[in-house]
Design a protein around this nucleic acid. Sequence first.
DNA 1: CCGGTTTCCTGACTAAAGTCAGAGAATGAA
DNA 2: TTCATTCTCTGACTTTAGTCAGGAAACCGG
Lengths: 299, 299
Amino acid sequence: MNATQIDQVRRFNRAVTARVGVLHDHYLGRERPIGEARLLWEVGEEGRDVRRLRERLGLDSGYVSRLLRRLEADGLVTVEPQHDDRRVRTVRLTDAGRAERAMLDARSDDLAGSLLAPLNSAQRARLVAAMAEVERLLTAGTVTFDAVDPDHPDARECLRSYVTELHERFDTGFDPARTLLPDPGELRPPRGLFLVARLHGEPVGCGGLKMPSDAPAEIKRMWVAPGARGLGLGRRFLAELEARAAEHGRDLLRLDTNRDLTAAIGLYHSYGFTEVPAFNDEPYAHHWFEKRVAAPPRQ
Amino acid sequence: MNATQIDQVRRFNRAVTARVGVLHDHYLGRERPIGEARLLWEVGEEGRDVRRLRERLGLDSGYVSRLLRRLEADGLVTVEPQHDDRRVRTVRLTDAGRAERAMLDARSDDLAGSLLAPLNSAQRARLVAAMAEVERLLTAGTVTFDAVDPDHPDARECLRSYVTELHERFDTGFDPARTLLPDPGELRPPRGLFLVARLHGEPVGCGGLKMPSDAPAEIKRMWVAPGARGLGLGRRFLAELEARAAEHGRDLLRLDTNRDLTAAIGLYHSYGFTEVPAFNDEPYAHHWFEKRVAAPPRQ
DNA sequence: CCGGTTTCCTGACTAAAGTCAGAGAATGAA
DNA sequence: TTCATTCTCTGACTTTAGTCAGGAAACCGG
């Protein structure tokens, strides 16, 4: 990270807050204070508990309560106790509320349109593409990688999805009991470790590292949720796992994979893995890779 | 502009306000209200007139006055009458003010850094490049093109800069009196028109269209300020002028240019002009172009 | 030097956004 | 059953961010 980059980011921040931020408030809160508008928006089509609303907007409970009273008085929402826990109250939109929310939605479209309107179609395409890239990378930046026990609920959720996906994608199907890693103990310290990637607190991927004392370190069970693909998480998993292996004094990283996972194979190649002869009898593997462990690429 | 684009812009807006917007306020206004912080920032190292501050922040004069009193009471700024017009008052930072501003500066750097920090260096480079693109295009979107009289102060300012620049760039120098357009009346309705491009109210470019009754329309005096280059303004001038010519029922557009203006020559080619034999005796011209007038490319 | 204009200031407001300290009902654990 | 906890609400308060009307001083053109 250098001064030129910092400078560009700051220019970006200025331009965006000036253009998007100001317009946002201007478009959103015309006859309704922004606080109420944001709340109305967060209630959503489905309705939402007061507690969740407070969390998502980061507001004081008294304040939210007051905002709700005002929306209720205007006939935009109803607030009713939940059935199973009557302390918790659920907010739902009325028809009028739905209509007002739809109007806010339309205004958001207008705002988006007003950013594109002055540009010609080639410029629009470039702006939209660049915005997609910024959004992707800003989002990617909020993903955290935490070492957890393979029995942690988030880990189990990822592993379940991993198995389901492989079963669908392999033309032979996939039965985890037949693989070389039926025992999650191998992915738990001190014999290994297991990472979960989280976006806004939700698990969006996992990756295990097996570090047997008598063999090179090996990456297992790496998976990224479909909704989080394209954020470069696969590459970051490799980097994180490689860094972890380096911390444990390992100098060689191995992995095997199935011929149906073409995107993964491409990733391994581009990350610096080289294909080697089979180093195990994994029944689902068609390709075997290894890579010398480098110092982590992050500063 | 289609629904997919609108949608992408909205996702971008959400991601950016969530990440940049929130962090911005959090970083900037810690012990000082954002209003004061923004004002302190706008005063700048050099100091600035109260009037300018009001304009730039778009605030009520009474409000600015009150903010200034508070900053003054905290010993961060001094406010003194200007020498030549003692109604106008100039705000200047004290040493303490300079220190506080430097701290805000450092925080802005931190904010920028916090966006880049979680990414690896390849991702950083891509994020910064995409941000630069977004910034450029958002900025370009705020540029307005207005028809003005060639004697309007903004037009004169652009024309002065135009002449100065050509004089510096042509190896022969440039004397406007020797060109084929010594008379600005040709760029004034009904015989022609003159456009000024403005960014945040400041003139950043100009372009004239000569529409003689007995000859094709001709583009003259097109210029973009050095600070505004790379925003695609040259192309937009051509588009605007072409659209104007079309509105006046013209079907052919001409222009001539000097061999030293290589970027302009490239632009004319890429915009669809084709080089033709000399159609006038302009002493500074080496290349002559023409283009069939099309319907304007914007929706 | 006079009347109109500009520039900045003050005083009196307002609305929005939020904080804080309890109160009261519902729940869960012992 | 009791006691602590959770969840939401109310009342009383503050700060921030402004708006509006008018007034004093300085300037400018005739």
